[in-house]
Amino acid sequence: MDWTKQIIRYAVVMVLQVLLFDQLQLLGVCHPYIYILCLMMMPITLPHISDMLIGATAGLIMDIFCNSLGVHTSACILLMYVRPYILSALINETDRLNEQLSLHSLGMEAMTKYVVILVLLHHLTVFMLAAWSWQHVGFVVLETLVSSLLTILVILGYNILKYR
């Protein structure tokens, strides 16, 4: 795995996240978390446990920017935990992946499913934990749907542009 490339991509995505996507004020319910792009598109070469630790770190960094200690951390750990299971459920021969996750190796259909499932899972976890009560459940669901839509578009767009 090319660490330099991964870290540079993470830095660029975090700048976009904090300076652009966190400042969006669309309808009051659109809070996309595009930084998970880096976690989701990481090659699947590392041991599962290291994946989860990387997820925890990325989540903690995001939490510092959001004043929501622990919320993104748990969502990212969950994301990295389920990632290999979702992948093996979507594709029969995992060898075909050749360790790289891309539109080329996954195919459009599997890629879309992979992104949609993981983004919805992550965003729902973040917004549920951030609300920390059942009182705002309607708002949380709406927030999840609207924000996920934008995140999914960004991540799919990134993949399409990269492997056009």
């Binding site: 925890a56 929501s68 748990s74 934990l129």
Partner: peptide
């Protein structure tokens, strides 16, 4: 890890 993260949330609240 999840237990640790939840403790962080509770502590932060």
């Amino acid at each position: 890890l999840e237990v640790a993260a939840f403790l962080l949330i509770v502590y932060n609240h």
